[in-house]
Design a protein around this nucleic acid. Structure first.
Length: 376
DNA sequence: GAAACGTGGCC
DNA sequence: TGGCCAAGTTT
């Protein structure tokens, strides 16, 4: 990439690249957050964290990562698990394809490589769900491979630093290439993993999309922008009204000695063929989203992608099946205790939590049953 | 190369 | 409330 070298020389005076690397890594050592996946050198642990962090906030990931690693401590344990168990661990995190591909890749590595992940970014890149960013992140962090990562943070930090702006829609790709070339020139050959994490950490905690904290930025001296930069406008949110059924019954199933009776909720599994959340379980859709006032249990706003769903939840009794839309997949009465551990959609988890039908968190379990059904 | 793929949390 | 995300990958 000779062109990248030229760009770097245009941006920095000779010799300042090593100073930049030092500034960045010094800052990182002093300011890095203590995150669970940073306490491990295990490539599997780093891999899981990188997949879970894709398009997902660190604050959301922390607890879920620890739960996932407790349930699947090793690559082989993940490979051996049923897919529904993996999806259940992913429930509420979204982008479920990540979980399915992580699982698939673990099975490939278990079957073909005795459970040892590839070491080089080039080989990692061949596994499902591992793209340009993730392969570089794992290889540089776990094995010290000298390869740059370019995620959303790095893209923002470097474009601001270089003073490059998105000019047009088509210009975004060209700019991305320039940033990748710049990152490749900048990455510290001595400590690529720390350098990469430093750049990402800077973007995540200082060089914020809005309100960048330029006064505390370790590299503001070489930054062309020192503040916000232009970003392309986003698509408008759409809105849509839907209804879901909350059907709860008291079980008369005495077959299971452990839980001879208890309450069960009616769930429906989304078909494997749908593009959105295949295989996940949810409350059955209502035939009619217009719910009579007296049957309205609660309303929920739930944003999925570019759409705001205004969701009406109504009680549907066991005999009133005609209120439900035609089932697209299997329907099953599930004991509430079991449902909590299933591969529920985020909306379903939200509704059942809000209805106090199972705890949102393990410790939040004390709920008077008398309150159930009386909430609006 | 654009479009699709989810969600919890914060302002 | 409505908008805006957040450590990308696949098709």
């Amino acid at each position: 990439m000779p062109y990248a070298g030229k760009m770097v020389r245009q941006i920095f005076e000779s010799g300042t690249i090593s100073a930049l690397r030092r500034c960045l890594i010094d800052w990182y050592e002093r300011n890095r957050r203590d995150l669970p996946w940073r306490n491990s050198q295990d490539p599997y642990a780093i891999w899981v964290s990188e997949i879970m962090l894709q398009q997902t906030r660190v604050a959301v990931v922390i607890d879920r990562y620890q739960a996932f690693m407790t349930r699947f401590p090793t690559l082989v344990s993940l490979a051996l698990a049923p897919e529904q168990d993996v999806l259940a661990q992913w429930s509420g995190l979204g982008y479920y394809r990540r979980a399915r591909m992580l699982h698939k890749a673990a099975q490939l590595v278990a079957a073909q490589r005795e459970g040892n992940l590839p070491v080089t970014s080039t080989e990692l890149r061949l596994l499902p769900g591992i793209g340009a960013y993730t392969s570089a992140a794992i290889a540089s962090i776990a094995h010290g491979e000298v390869v740059a990562v370019v995620d959303g943070n790095v893209e923002r930090v470097l474009s601001r630093m270089a003073g490059w702006e998105v000019v047009s829609r088509t210009g975004a790709t060209a700019l991305r290439r320039k940033i990748e070339a710049l990152a490749a020139q900048l990455v510290d050959p001595a400590r690529p993993g720390d350098f990469n994490q430093a750049l990402m950490e800077l973007g995540a905690t200082v060089c914020l999309p809005r309100n960048p904290q330029c006064l505390t930025c370790p590299i503001s001296a070489v930054c062309k922008t020192r503040g916000e930069h232009k970003t392309p406008p986003r698509a408008r949110m759409l809105s849509c009204e839907v209804g879901h059924a909350l059907s709860v019954r008291t079980s008369h199933n005495t077959a299971k000695a452990c839980c001879p009776s208890g309450r069960e909720v009616l769930l429906e599994q989304r078909p494997a063929s749908v593009t959105v959340m295949p295989g996940m379980w949810e409350l059955p859709l209502l035939r009619n989203a217009a719910v009579p006032e007296e049957d309205l249990r609660m309303t929920v706003r739930h944003a999925i992608m570019q759409v705001n769903y205004y969701v009406r939840i109504r009680t549907v009794f066991e005999d009133d099946v005609q209120e439900l839309a035609i089932a697209a997949g299997e329907r099953r009465w599930v004991p509430l205790g079991e449902a909590a551990g299933m591969a529920l959609t985020g909306l379903t988890r939200k509704v059942l939590s809000r209805a106090r039908l199972f705890p949102a968190a393990p410790l939040d379990s004390i709920t008077p049953l008398a309150g159930v059904g009386m909430r609006g």
